[in-house]
Simulated assay, not measured.
Amino acid sequence: MNRTLGYAIDGRDMGGPPDREAGLSVGAVAQRLGVAASTLRTWDRRYGIGPTRRSTGAHRRYTPADIARLEVMHRLLLSGAPPGEAARVALDAPPGGPPLPRGHGAGGNRVPVGAATRGPEGAEVRGLARAAMALDGPAMGDAVRTALGRDGVVRAWNELFVPVLEGIGRRYAASGDCVDVEHLLSAVLLGRLAEVPPPVRPRNARPVLLACAPEEQHSLPVHALAAALAEAGIAATLLGARVPEPALAAAIRRTGPNAVFVWSQTAETGAPARLGALPASRPPYRLVVGGPGWARDRLPASVTPVASLDEAVAELTSMYGRP
């Protein structure tokens, strides 16, 4: 599932020296990336990220630089970036530059956060993936509960749940299939994360508010964060998906939180101006945002962005000292 493409940027992997008619057809590139040829044509037509060289027969061919850009776009899409934003970043990326960091989040509920260290060749990842593809809810539930009990939320998320979700995302990107698989696995994850008990004696007297941005429906990352905070002894109030700005403002006034965390998966829901409109309180709260939907260069100076589940937990527990 998490196969990494090792493409020769200098053209030597195209079957001939770079100064000759090097280039790959759309079918060959689709096979390399694991996507449909029609998907590549759509990326070319809509976003201008396509082949730049023509063969003697006037057929357009993908150069090594073209493929490097497509790899960047593909990785960003699998991380959850909107197609237009992924294409913009890919077109701006220098060919042969360093690989993009992970942690932008995954499409739909395929999120974020932290690089997986238990690769797709691992038996546990394969086992959960097989159960997911078979729509075997009980087997998925057992695997998820076992990982959470043994490893804790953050490690299970980074090393098991995210790799499997990303693998399902690859299948979806290639074929448009597996929506049912993702929905069932997400439901199982939500159920098992909800089983993590809240702290009996919380370290915080004032709550941490967790919410999705208005119209943001991808709430799985916020549920994972709530469970991870519970393990760390932090009481959190989870408002869930699609929290309107007035509702979040009202919750801030009612609870006087220590911190507020807002998740945005897509650029359509991550409007920085909405953050500036949230009410102040005394004592003041820490405002933290996560997810690939936020344009970091436009966030208010008072807002702290985080790029992974690990970072979110560290940021939201740092004000309480050691447990």
Score class of each variant (00 low, 15 high):
A132S: 15
A81Y: 08
R155A: 10
G84A: 15
P99V: 01
P138W: 13
I67D: 02
T52K: 04
A115Y: 13
A132M: 15
S55R: 01
Y62L: 01
D66V: 03
A134Q: 15
G119M: 02
V154M: 12
I49H: 00
A90C: 15
H74D: 07
R150V: 10
L70F: 04
R150G: 07
P95E: 11
R69G: 09
V111L: 10
G114M: 13
L100P: 07
Y62V: 00
R60S: 00
R145G: 01
R75D: 15
E71A: 08
P95H: 12
A90G: 13
P82H: 05
R130I: 07
P138F: 14
A81W: 06
D151Y: 09
M133E: 07
G141P: 04
M133D: 04
G141E: 09
R145V: 01
G108L: 11
R130A: 09
P95M: 13
A139W: 04
G119W: 04
E85K: 15
R130G: 03
L91G: 05
S55F: 07
R54A: 05
R53E: 05
G152F: 02
R69P: 02
E121S: 14
A143W: 03
Y62Q: 00
L70S: 07
R150N: 07
P83W: 05
R60N: 02
P82I: 00
T117M: 14
V144D: 06
A123M: 11
N109W: 14
G50K: 04
V111A: 08
E71R: 06
A134V: 10
Y62N: 01
D142W: 09
A134H: 11
S55P: 05
A129R: 11
A132C: 15
M133S: 05
R118I: 02
A115W: 12
A115G: 13
M140F: 12
A116K: 12
I67L: 08
G97M: 09
S55V: 04
E71Y: 00
E85Y: 14
D92P: 09
L91N: 06
R102Y: 07
P120D: 14
P112D: 13
P101D: 10
D142E: 11
P120H: 12
A106N: 11
P64T: 01
G122I: 00
D92Y: 03
A116V: 08
G57P: 14
R61A: 00
G149F: 03
G80Q: 13
Y62E: 02
A129S: 14
A58H: 12
G137L: 08
G137S: 13
N109M: 06
G48M: 03
L78M: 08
V113R: 14
A58W: 10
G152E: 03
P98H: 03
G122N: 15
A156L: 03
A129M: 10
L70C: 07
V89P: 11
A123I: 09
A93L: 05
P83H: 02
L76Y: 08
P64Q: 04
L128Y: 11
G57D: 11
R53P: 04
P94L: 04
V153F: 15
P51R: 01
G105C: 00
G50V: 03
V153N: 10
E121D: 15
A129L: 10
G149I: 08
T117I: 14
D142M: 06
H74I: 02
D136L: 10
G105H: 02
H59M: 02
G108E: 13
T52L: 04
H59V: 03
T56R: 14
G103P: 15
G103H: 14
V144R: 03
G50Q: 05
